[in-house]
Simulated scan of single mutants.
Amino acid sequence: MEPAWSLDSIWNNEHLGIVQLNHKGELVAVSDKWLNLYNYDENDIASLSVGDILSDRRQERESRSLLDEIFQRKRRSYRLTRKFRKKNGGYFWGNVYVCAATDKAENVLGATAVVVDISREKELEFKLRYLSSVDPLCQIFNRRHFFKLSEQAMLDARRDDAPLSLLYIDIDDFKKINDLYGHPYGDEILVNFVRCVKDILRVPDIFARIGGEEFAVTLSNASAPEATRIAQRILDHIAEMNAMHRPDELPYSVSIGIATMREDDHGLDDLIRRADKSLYRAKQAGKNRYRTDLD
């Protein structure tokens, strides 16, 4: 059946970037919207390949494989969400729908791809994902995301036969600070503490606010001696910051419980349970110190 009206309105649609590819995967025609999306002009088309507009080699291999399936009549179409590369080096996110282009005898001549820019939707998605994983005051991971990342870190450590340790940290007498000076000042203490800890931690370490004045750090590839060194550096750094505090700032301290992964640990809960017991012993010993599950 022939179309009831001209398809020019689709080709010229301001929301759809359309490209036609021959059976070699070469670009043979593009719409003005497509050029606008990728920041190319018509003179660039002859030298472009699929790899030029995708963000990495893995995506290029996958896209070429899917195109080959279309050209070999193994599939009629496919749909993907991709991060595309622009001529100027920038990127945008798009939904792409690719279908076979055939003649009346159903011979595959090439493919037609339609791209819709979804960068705004992706930006909102990333923002919501970030907000759902981060503590709003301290701007570090929240409890839920900490458990997700740390459980995976434990699996990775077991797979690689690597050590892993956990620090469980509590700000000493924080309730008294809040009661005497108010919650806004307590919030300042929390933010200051987070800044101090970030100064010490390594890039792969997982740092989170577990609740109230309680924090946790998962230390990948960290044995018990390495974990105690990091804990002591945190204590020392807080002491240094306290020594430089302004007259209107209240010094504070923290206690740290340390646990190192064992063969018989069934999950993160076992590690946290031992770190929490170590933290309790640090509090009982006078606060402003660490204790380990080996003590």
Rank of each mutant, 00 (worst) to 15 (best):
A285T: 08
S77K: 13
S223V: 09
L190N: 06
L48A: 13
S31V: 03
E214K: 15
I10G: 07
G94I: 01
V217D: 08
I177F: 11
I258D: 01
D117A: 06
S165Q: 07
Q232L: 08
R289Q: 15
D8T: 12
D236L: 07
I206T: 11
V116N: 09
R202Q: 13
E125H: 08
V50K: 04
L137G: 12
K176N: 13
F84G: 01
L131A: 13
Y38L: 15
R289E: 01
L109G: 05
D295T: 15
N142Q: 12
D135F: 15
F92D: 07
W11V: 05
K87I: 03
S55L: 06
Y280A: 02
E188Y: 07
D8L: 12
E60R: 05
V114I: 15
L294T: 14
D179I: 10
N288L: 11
E106A: 13
V50I: 15
H266F: 04
P204T: 11
V254P: 03
Q284Y: 00
V254K: 00
A208I: 06
Y252M: 10
L294H: 09
V203I: 03
L149N: 01
E123W: 02
G211A: 09
R85C: 12
V30F: 05
P204L: 05
T228G: 08
N142P: 13
N12H: 10
T228Q: 14
Y168E: 05
K175N: 04
I189P: 04
N22Q: 02
F92M: 02
A275T: 05
K175D: 09
R58K: 15
H237E: 06
L167C: 12
M154R: 06
K104E: 12
P3E: 04
S6N: 14
N142L: 06
V134W: 00
H145L: 00
D179R: 09
E62F: 11
R64E: 12
S63D: 14
T260H: 02
E213H: 13
D41M: 10
V30N: 08
E62D: 15
R61F: 14
R246S: 14
V217N: 08
W93N: 07
Q284I: 01
E214Q: 09
V134M: 15
N221W: 06
I258R: 01
P204I: 12
A113C: 09
N107G: 01
D205N: 05
I230K: 06
L250S: 05
S150T: 14
K33G: 02
Q20D: 00
N39E: 14
E213L: 02
H15V: 07
V191D: 02
G286W: 04
H183P: 07
R233F: 04
I258E: 08
N39C: 14
L190K: 03
R58C: 02
N192I: 03
E42F: 09
E151T: 03
R281V: 02
K74L: 08
